[in-house]
Amino acid sequence: MKKVALVTGACGGIGQAIVRRLHAEGWDVALNGFNTQESGSQAALELTGAIYIDADVSSSAEAQRMVQETVTHFGRLDAVINNAGVAKQIPHADLDAVDDEFWDFIMAVNLKGPWNIARAARAHLAQTRGQIINNASLAGLVPSGSSIPYAVSKAGLLHLTQLLAKSLGPEIRVNAVAPGYIDTPLTHDWAELREYVAENAPAKRLGSPEDVAEVVHGLLQMDYVTGTTIPVAGGLQLL
């Protein structure tokens, strides 16, 4: 029987790359998005055996439904990739530009979302000795990022990763990836940052969604790694 992965935020650049990589490696995949029914369903149709589930990760009830639909359809769950996330460019010095609505929204999706999914999936993952992989950010490791709320949400996600690894082991491994600048449709127009990364990152190139997917796939094969965060940033964390 094929292993099964649930990938949230599967309609974006990084999510699509993760889904395609896992499918190519022989996994069955449940794609999740929110209010992306048309594009999500089309993406699932292009991958034999995949399904799409439209659900809001910030809702614990929706997270529970998403996990249950995945298990009902495939009969098991081996991995959850918490990739869903939101971001908006706000200068860090402009504290007044961050209103309550934005703060609550970004925490609900970026931090509460992975928590909701972990709780909903833990019993199923324990049965398969599976893994949770959280897509965090280099902004969670160093004081950077598109906004202060974004960076705080990702720092919290990295700490959540460690706490869950301690709490859910040994049956479930919990790890994280921390991308730096990744060239996606969302970030493609961030010209100043693109130029900085290309010139200053030790890797001397921009990151791609496939770079993140490569690390996610690698972590899924590492049975003795848990509570770990792997930067996917071309060495930007060294600057």
Rank of each mutant, 00 (worst) to 15 (best):
I117G: 00
L163G: 07
A87W: 08
G156H: 07
L164N: 05
V98F: 08
D96H: 12
A121C: 12
D100G: 14
L95D: 03
L164P: 02
G140Y: 10
I148E: 00
N134T: 10
F102I: 10
S137C: 11
G85Y: 05
Q127G: 09
G140R: 05
N83C: 13
G130H: 04
R129S: 13
I90T: 11
F105A: 13
I132Q: 01
K88I: 12
G130L: 09
L160Q: 04
D100Q: 13
L125R: 04
V109L: 03
I106M: 06
L160R: 00
P91H: 06
A123D: 13
I90R: 07
V152Y: 04
A120R: 03
D104P: 00
G85M: 05
R122V: 12
G140A: 10
N134Q: 08
N83S: 13
A136Q: 08
W103K: 01
V109C: 05
H124P: 02
H124G: 03
V152L: 15
A136L: 06
I117C: 07
V86W: 04
L138I: 14
H159E: 11
L157Y: 02
P143S: 11
H92P: 05
Y150R: 09
A126T: 11
G145K: 05
L125D: 04
K112L: 10
V142H: 09
A84F: 07
L158C: 07
M107N: 02
A108I: 09
A151Y: 03
A97G: 03
L125G: 04
V86F: 05
G85E: 02
V152S: 10
P91I: 08
H92T: 05
L125Y: 04
I81A: 02
A108R: 09
L141I: 15
A108D: 12
L125A: 05
S144I: 13
G130R: 01
G85N: 05
I90K: 04
Q162F: 06
I133Q: 00
A151Q: 04
L95H: 13
A108L: 08
A155H: 06
D96M: 12
G113F: 03
S144K: 11
Q131D: 02
N82Q: 10
P91A: 08
G130A: 08
R122S: 11
D94N: 14
T128V: 06
H92D: 05
V98R: 01
L157S: 01
N134Y: 04
G156R: 08
R129F: 06
G156N: 09
M107K: 02
D104S: 13
Q162G: 11
R129T: 09
N135Q: 11
I148D: 00
A136V: 12
V109R: 01
H159V: 12
